[in-house]
Design a protein around this nucleic acid. Sequence first.
DNA 1: TTGTACGCGTTATCAA
DNA 2: TTGATAACGCGTACAA
Lengths: 351, 351
Amino acid sequence: MQTFALMRGVHMSVTIKDIAGKVGVAPSTVSRVVNGSASISEETKSRILQAMEEMNYHPNSLARNLVNGYSHCIGLIMDARDDITFSNTFFNRSVYAIDKAAQTNGYNLLIANDDNSKGASPVEKLVLERKVDGLILPSNCVRTGLVEMLVKNGCPFVVLGEPSVMKTEACWVDANNEEGARMAVLHLAEEGFQRIAFLIENRKTVFSEKRIAGYLEGLEAAGLSCGQAYIRECGLPENAETTAGETLEEREAPDAFLCSNNVIAYYTLQALKKRGLRIPEDIGIVTFDNHPFAQYMDPPLTAVDVDTFGLGEQAAFQLIQKIKRAESGSQHTLISTRLLIRRSSQKGGSK
Amino acid sequence: MQTFALMRGVHMSVTIKDIAGKVGVAPSTVSRVVNGSASISEETKSRILQAMEEMNYHPNSLARNLVNGYSHCIGLIMDARDDITFSNTFFNRSVYAIDKAAQTNGYNLLIANDDNSKGASPVEKLVLERKVDGLILPSNCVRTGLVEMLVKNGCPFVVLGEPSVMKTEACWVDANNEEGARMAVLHLAEEGFQRIAFLIENRKTVFSEKRIAGYLEGLEAAGLSCGQAYIRECGLPENAETTAGETLEEREAPDAFLCSNNVIAYYTLQALKKRGLRIPEDIGIVTFDNHPFAQYMDPPLTAVDVDTFGLGEQAAFQLIQKIKRAESGSQHTLISTRLLIRRSSQKGGSK
DNA sequence: TTGTACGCGTTATCAA
DNA sequence: TTGATAACGCGTACAA
């Protein structure tokens, strides 16, 4: 035990010099075989490799990073204010992809919470102290001040989700919300639903606007004339039951609901059940974002599923491109969505 | 644009030498004021500070790390094989706490997926190349080979969840599953339920054993004689509906179910509903792990809630202690649970 | 193909 | 209180 305590710490590991000494060559030669640079005679090469094996050599990334000026780390910013926000499944599924893309490209993933309550933002430290080579940040972290600081310090970054400010200057990746909403509406129309309402928290967010556009396009394409009048804001998802209820009392009540997220869908479900309406026979439901529990609802919910893996993968990929090529183009990428058809919308195919 | 491209990259930032030159002192003097070490005359100190301000100096962590041998990074290992596993809300809520604890102690958090399919494990690289000063790893990542490698390289680590191997050697933090199960049973007993069944995936995992122990203690304390006979394994959560159904057909059918996770609880709910049983009037349900959607079930599920924040916080805290003190004690910590009482178990208070 | 010498930005030691 | 110098481990011109 104490042996290990002594072995730990700073200057104890095997270095490039150690194997150089053992083999009888210059450190630079060892460095060359480690990096595969330049041409080395097969003989010394194999002797060096063998020594590396025997002495269990591993390059010290700290030293490496210092000399070539890169940390080989990608910073992923989270904007959680508590552990609930942090556990956002949608976001986390992207993280997996980001990590994977980073790892296959030789980058590590550094997570940092953007707790801008205190003076010096942790994010700022990350780039100023050169701890990261680039940043992925969620759209709601995009403040002009932050972006200016990134640009000033030449730190490449990619935004996850279309931001509300600096739309054109920034490089971002988002789900194709417009397409998703359109597909959902067309599906409902095909199933025979005629008056499709759209329930959202707040119509002024970027993604809401996109979804509304898609919703209207879908209605148009299906030849349904409801349109604008059937869009309802509920504010907090918890209010969705009330909002849905009120909508049902109107003179030309909707016969289907497109819900902007799973919680809204849940509350809408409650409203319908309390009124004794059968789903999907009387009323159809489609929700955005395929939460793992959507399939456990009663009935299972048809959902617009976002390829969160592809989303993260694209973001990481683009960031790495920017880092390597040191270019600052600002691409905008849309990841396509797909419709997972479950019982809640299948009027035609329902038993 | 091109200006930024030029400004970027390696050797462009202002260094300790630059300000030393500007102020007319030695680099070492600047270093001292940056670190607050040694005593500096008020005058030079303020001049240096002013220069740092003017030139927008920020210490290069890469160089710092090299000289003092520490990366100031904590590695957090994930064992996800896909994005679904990764989005495990339970785990992610701990991540938030870990990040917070790390940040307040001057550490960064490095995330890495333990994709041991390929030859060289990424985790091993992290340690061998000195990219992290310590590791937090989930209990199901604990293989003897990995632990041996960590010990050999003097890398401190803390396990999240009690591991099945190296229980005593390793330092771990876990939820108090035993207490949680006991509380749940006592609560059900108080509500008037008499024959409480326990539905688990697999009784042989470490946490299952703990929960079973607590379950039996609870029954004992409540003076209920059911016991061992009412423990049922369902294997995959999807089978829980069948398992619950079969249990209900037995001669002395249970009048309450303790479910080992939310998905099992969901399927149990289905089984009960299909039989026309009312919850909680006819049958009570309590689930482990308070998934955000537990409250949206019909009826809302009473849940054994784990303080995931505390869990992560403890893990990070202990790891940092080990890193700083270079000691290898192996503490075992249990985080207490609490019961969130909702409708599904309130026979007494039900309307 | 290989060795020499220097630098990356910082901290630590020693001397002044 | 300060400065010069040598490290930390590695990469890379340049020369051999």
